[in-house]
């Protein structure tokens, strides 16, 4: 089991989450040419080692997260919300500010 420390829910088994994919993929604009889309959709760095990837807390808060995880050892380095706004809110809460 991999345990993912969801920033909203706390540490949870990975079976609560859905695996997304490589978080480094920059999806092109909707009007981008086919080749750009091709590369984004079909090609993968496929890193063996630490990679940023998306996970969805599908049986939890339903937040998409960006997890830095080693694909060989499964060690997790960091977890943060994929949505920048959510991340900012969390930081604000952590600092004792108004959310």
């Amino acid at each position: 089991m991999i345990i993912i420390n969801c920033p909203f829910c706390g540490p949870r088994d990975h079976s609560e989450f859905g695996y997304g994919g490589d978080a480094s993929i920059d999806y092109p604009a909707l009007d981008a040419p086919m080749d750009e889309w091709h590369d984004a959709i079909f090609l993968r760095e496929n890193i063996c080692g630490m990679q940023a990837e998306t996970w969805h807390h599908v049986n939890g808060c339903r937040m998409w997260l960006i997890v830095e995880r080693d694909t060989m050892t499964h060690e997790i380095k960091s977890v943060r919300p994929a949505h920048g706004g959510n991340a900012a809110v969390l930081e604000n809460v952590a600092e004792g500010g108004e959310s």
Binding site: M1, I2, H14, S15, C48, E53, T71, M72, T73, H74
Partner: peptide
Amino acid sequence: DWYKSYAQRGNLP
């Protein structure tokens, strides 16, 4: 196992 991995070992779920 539903997540990308190069490890030749599985997990319980």
